[in-house]
Amino acid sequence: MILRSRQRDRLMRGVLTASAVLAVGVLVLIVGYVLWQGLPVLSRAFLLEPPAKMGRAGGIFPTIVGTVLLTAGAVVVAAPLGVATAIYLAEYAHQGRLVSLIRFGTESLAGIPSIIFGVFGFLFFVIYLGMGWSVLSGALTLAGMILPTIIRTAEEAMLAVPRAYREVSYSLGGSRWQTITRVVLPNALPGILTGIMLGVGRSVGETAAVIFTAGASLRVPHSVLDPVRTMSVHFYLLAREGISMRNAYGTAAVLVLSVLAVNFVAYYLMHRHLARLRGAGR
């Protein structure tokens, strides 16, 4: 009896370890394979020149511009809205029907798939508001997508600021807004930045929402109402239409590196910030 359970224990431990190795291994392999195939394609020309022959040759410069514009635009819109919402949730209202409603909205938004955002953006920005396929439509749609992430992370960051700091500020005659701007926000900033970086990471990789709102033009846009193609859309089109596997790998490598870099910065910021608060706060 005891022997059997010990055998089973060892068996299960083996299974679990193997599964973990498998899971992590597959993921690492994916990144490794993309980089292995794609890094050789990268060169100054690839990154700085526009594509030729619909992407069969040349570089991916306009798509890099597109990704940067859309992501920056999304952050510019979503960050203030998200941080303000988080301030309200963390510092002003804590419970009650109003707050539950807001949280419901935020959590639901977080679960909505990108294609629905794409359809919405198409219906609302491109058609109803008449912006057409444009940087503006794409950026606003992406802003809606990353809003929940920013709200969630910013709120957590603010709640992590020790309550004692607020009490000190209030006891010295500080108003609520003064306490928020002079004590809470400065200490929550790294966490808030992490949330923004996570949003950036998501925007960079987004395809479905972008393709139906920003279009797929290969020209560098001159105004916010011009259409633009992002790296992920370019990559998708190259791969699916079989235009150029080589350039597809190259684009994928840039994409993967960008996302990894952004997320790495985000987590590094977060961990350093948490360590500082934990070590310093009493």
Binding site: A84, T85, A93, F104, G105, L109, F117, L147, R176
Partner: peptide
């Protein structure tokens, strides 16, 4: 102070409003 509070509350409804807008148009 109360103006700031009211402003923040309005902004805080942005996520819910967006959700409603999405539902409406879809």
């Amino acid at each position: 102070e109360s103006l700031i509070r009211r402003l923040l509350m309005v902004v805080a409804f942005s996520s819910l409003s967006l959700l409603a807008l999405i539902a409406l148009f879809i």
